[in-house]
Simulated scan of single mutants.
Amino acid sequence: MAAPKTIPAALVVFLCFCSQAQAIKDFDYYSLVLMWPASYCFQSAAGCCLPTTGKPALDFFITGLQTRNSATGDVAAECKQSNFYVKELADLTDDLYAYWTNIRCPSTNPLSNWKNSWKTSGVCSGLSEHDYFKTALELREKLDLLSIFKKNGIVPSGENFYNVEYIKKVIKKSLGVSVAIECNRNMWDESQFYQIYFCFDKDASTIISCPNVKPSTCAEEVTFGLFTYDMLVNTAAKPNPIKMYTS
């Protein structure tokens, strides 16, 4: 009987790598990431700038609709190659300019944000490009987080600090789920409410408690700064409208 052939070590490593790569592409829930823009503006002396597409909403911005794996908590990303067609979003652009924009300096437009989200998580979602962005906008609107906060005494202010556990309890009471909160630090080295992760089942509509929540980056109490248009510096000489192109 011939001796069994052994698999070369390099091939074993390759097969393991392929298996892990495949696993990370499997997703079973969404994570909608909302950012409080004032905390972006206050994180450094660079401040923030008015987008070339006009004034955004004075509300939470979307920074991503991530496809995630509940077993690991990792983002399932780049499942396939797909072009980004901004013309597919023609009926959504007003809302995207308002709620999924870019306030970094110098002034720019949010096209790169949208393209990156589509090519990273959108392609894993099974949704069309249009439906992926429409879904993110609809979920943000249904949450209406600012209203929930205001009803419970959590109001943007340059003076007040809020207990992070109280914020989580407010959300739990209002929506029945647990969320993940991310903080950053402002120029005065204060912990500030920065991003919040809401999780949804694979149907992209049923809200669920977020699995595999990582340890908080927040202090016990955080600032929740006021966001106004006065904070947005206009560094563009003239508007820079998004061109309809494919990439």
Rank of each mutant, 00 (worst) to 15 (best):
D131Y: 14
S209A: 03
D203N: 11
P110G: 06
G176C: 10
C183I: 15
S107A: 05
G158F: 07
L145Y: 05
T108K: 02
L143R: 08
I103A: 03
N186H: 14
L146P: 08
L146V: 07
F133G: 02
D131A: 06
S147N: 10
C183L: 13
S125F: 09
E190P: 11
Y197N: 14
V177D: 09
E190L: 14
P215W: 07
E129T: 05
A180E: 12
D201K: 07
C199Q: 04
T217M: 12
Y132N: 01
G153A: 06
K115V: 08
Y197T: 14
V164M: 06
A136H: 02
E190H: 15
R104L: 00
E165V: 14
N113V: 06
I208V: 09
S112G: 06
K172W: 13
L143K: 10
R185N: 10
K172M: 13
K151T: 06
G176Y: 02
L145A: 01
P215V: 11
V177A: 12
K169R: 15
S191G: 11
E138N: 03
T120W: 02
C210W: 00
R104C: 02
T135H: 04
S112A: 07
P110E: 02
W118Q: 05
V213E: 01
N186Q: 10
D203P: 01
A180N: 09
L145E: 03
S178K: 07
K151V: 12
W188S: 13
T217V: 15
F133Q: 08
N186S: 14
G176R: 11
I154N: 03
M187R: 13
C199H: 04
A136I: 00
L127Q: 06
V170H: 05
A204W: 02
F149Y: 01
I196C: 10
S117T: 09
A136Q: 04
R140F: 01
W188E: 13
D189L: 14
R104S: 06
K142Y: 12
G153W: 01
G176M: 13
K168G: 04
K151L: 09
A180D: 15
Q192R: 11
C183S: 11
I103N: 00
S117I: 01
Y132G: 00
L137F: 02
D144H: 01
L139D: 08
G122P: 04
I167M: 07
W118S: 07
I207Q: 07
E182Y: 12
I171G: 04
L111E: 13
Y162Q: 02
K169A: 03
K150Q: 01
S178Q: 15
L143N: 08
I167F: 05
I103D: 04
V123G: 08
C124N: 05
S107V: 08
N113H: 08
V177F: 13
L127M: 10
D203M: 11
N113A: 10
E165L: 11
I207S: 07
I167Y: 03
D144M: 08
F200S: 00
G153R: 12
S216K: 10
P215I: 12
F161S: 02
F161G: 00
D201V: 11
A136E: 00
Y197R: 14
P110M: 04
M187V: 15
Y166W: 12
W118L: 00
P156V: 03
I154E: 02
K119G: 10
G126M: 11
L145M: 07
D203W: 13
